[in-house]
């Protein structure tokens, strides 16, 4: 793979994230092999591939949970300029670079209410406004207004994601589909530039996944957020993606728009196998 930008980057959206020759090895296992990818703002980029292809590993490298063996992940931040995510402390990836992820197995704060989950996401802004609790302890005006702003932001996303009725319910008590929505709402409360969603449609019913499609399009088109999506549900991937990257055994085997990917022989081979012998070999 060369270091040139992929077509999606030139389709209008401003380049947001650049992955250059990313390799991740665990002992003898190469989970990601020389992966390069560009993710623009205001577009939906999907990563697909069979199980074990390295998709979640890619997310973990991106969001600071793993340090890649070689290669760079560069975020073009409108305010701070280019930032190397692989050299940041992991919490800076969300805090400074604005790359926020969700998890394949939902990770909410189950005993806290939905609203609290969304307030926690705004911790950094609130903590700064509370002057590390000192102003907050004495109820200073600056903190109060920051708190109101945080509540307003939480309310906005609660309303947009139809979570308003259950705002005071413990998050762990809600249905799977709702928890997925809460996790996305929580990520949105961090004000991400790039939203990384790890299988957001897993476990959703057809109606919920249609709503998810609509939400993803709304976020990328109206809020100009970059969306990076790992998904198995082709109803979601093929309908919303502007650009698709296919991984297999840590290698990028294809890249392009949905129509191109659907007709790509390598992709069909990776998913279905070529013939009997090939399937057995895999």
């Amino acid at each position: 793979m060369s270091n040139t930008l992929t077509p999606a980057a030139n389709q209008g959206g401003k380049l947001l994230l650049e992955v250059e020759h990313l390799t991740m090895r665990f002992g003898g296992l190469t989970a990601l092999n020389d992966l390069s990818l560009a993710v623009p703002a205001g577009k939906i980029t999907s990563i697909i591939g069979p199980n074990g292809a390295g998709k979640t590993t890619f997310f973990n490298c991106l969001t600071g949970f793993y340090k890649p063996t070689t290669g760079n992940v560069r975020m073009h931040h409108p305010q701070y300029g280019p930032l190397l995510l692989n050299q940041m402390p992991s919490y800076h990836v969300a805090r400074k670079a604005g790359v926020v992820r969700t998890f394949q197995n939902i990770r909410l704060f189950p005993n806290m209410t939905v609203l609290e989950n969304l307030i926690v996401a705004q911790h950094n802004a609130l903590q700064r406004a509370s002057r590390f609790s000192i102003a907050g302890l004495f109820g200073q005006a600056g903190y109060k207004s920051a708190r109101e702003a945080a509540l307003a932001k939480a309310l906005m996303w609660l309303t947009r994601l139809k979570l308003l009725d259950i705002a005071d319910t413990a998050a762990g008590n809600l249905s799977y589909g709702t928890q997925r929505r809460i996790e996305i709402a929580r990520a949105l409360c961090v004000d991400p530039l790039l939203l990384c969603l790890d299988e957001p449609a897993a476990g959703l019913n057809p109606r919920e996944s249609a709503e998810l499609n609509e939400l993803l399009l709304y976020l990328s088109r109206e809020h100009n957020k970059g969306v990076l999506l790992i998904e198995h549900d082709m109803n979601v991937v093929m309908r919303v993606s502007d650009h698709i990257c296919v991984l297999n055994f840590g290698n990028k085997i294809a890249e392009g728009n949905p129509a191109q990917i659907q007709n790509d022989p390598d992709v069909i081979k990776a998913y279905l196998g070529e013939d009997e012998t090939d399937q057995e070999a895999a």
């Binding site: 800076h92 805090r95 609790s133 907050g136």
Partner: peptide
């Protein structure tokens, strides 16, 4: 008072899920 301040809510969030806290940009 602390419990209602960001730091108190953050304590509880760390108790609930540390990894999620990191993903939200919190300095655990």
């Amino acid at each position: 008072r602390l419990r209602k301040l960001p730091v108190g809510i953050a304590w509880e969030a760390v108790r609930e899920d540390e990894v999620a806290c990191k993903a939200l940009g919190m300095n655990v």
